[in-house]
Amino acid sequence: MKSIAQINEKIKKGKAVVVTAEEVIEIVKEKGYKQAYEYVDVVTTGTFGPMCSSGAFINFGHSNPPIRMQSIMLNDVPAYGGLAAVDTYIGATEVSTKRGMEYGGAHVIEDLIAGKDIKLHALSNGTDCYPNKEVLTTINKDNINQAYMFNPRNAYQNYPAATNSTNKTIYTYMGTLLPNYGNITYSTSGELSPLINDPYLRTIGLGT
């Protein structure tokens, strides 16, 4: 049995066999479980399809004086303020108050990951322990405390792909669909999805 130390050493030497969760399925089919176990060192499992429930929790860190953020805007996109003092959740489908459908929560998350600066505007009623009533500043991935992306409905069954056969652009929960089959958007974990692998719920069962 391989130890974590042995695998880490192979990674340092550039000799580790690293495959995705999708790739390991084919390796097991070809080699069998035992040989696949001996051959593969690392399986990456960050394989999910972002969709309408996706979003990010962000902790900004405290201002001086401190503030209990209640109304929060990131690049003019509303974010949820009903968490801790300087925490927020920004949903991927939230739209900009100034740019509408052209820019929204998913773009904010993309810009944050890319290292771009994000305008933060937060308001508060103010309290004795959080006297500050407004913060207007710039954040990026290097000056915030934490950011975690979440995808609550990752194993959803009915969102494999969408396209548009009409002559006009349409806006849907699957994103912007260009006319005349100009693009296809997809949101699924594919062959890793337990619901797609078990469409008749023979193993999963309702409520599991």
Rank of each mutant, 00 (worst) to 15 (best):
I72N: 01
V135D: 09
P160M: 02
V40T: 10
N140D: 12
D87S: 09
G115Y: 07
V43H: 00
Y80S: 11
E22L: 13
C129I: 11
T188S: 15
L74C: 06
H62E: 15
V24Q: 04
I184V: 15
I11Y: 01
K119Y: 04
D198I: 09
N64P: 01
L201W: 06
D111A: 05
G49E: 01
V77L: 00
P179V: 00
I184H: 04
Y200Q: 14
H107A: 09
A92Y: 07
G104V: 00
G49Q: 02
V19W: 10
A114V: 13
Q157M: 11
V42E: 09
A147W: 02
N154Q: 12
K98V: 12
N154H: 10
Y181T: 04
N59D: 12
T93V: 11
P50C: 08
K116V: 10
T137N: 03
S54R: 00
G55I: 03
G82E: 05
R153C: 11
D87Q: 11
I204H: 09
F48T: 13
N8R: 15
G82Y: 07
A147R: 00
V18N: 06
A84M: 09
G81L: 03
I204C: 03
I113V: 13
A92S: 15
L120H: 02
A16E: 07
T188Q: 08
P194I: 02
S53C: 11
Y171H: 14
D41E: 05
R153H: 03
I170C: 11
I72T: 02
G207H: 02
S124G: 13
E94Y: 12
A36D: 11
V42P: 06
T163N: 01
C129W: 14
I72F: 00
D128V: 13
R153E: 02
K98P: 08
A56P: 02
M174T: 05
V42S: 04
T188W: 06
Q70T: 12
S53H: 05
N8H: 10
G115V: 09
P160S: 09
D117H: 06
G175S: 15
F48Y: 13
F48C: 04
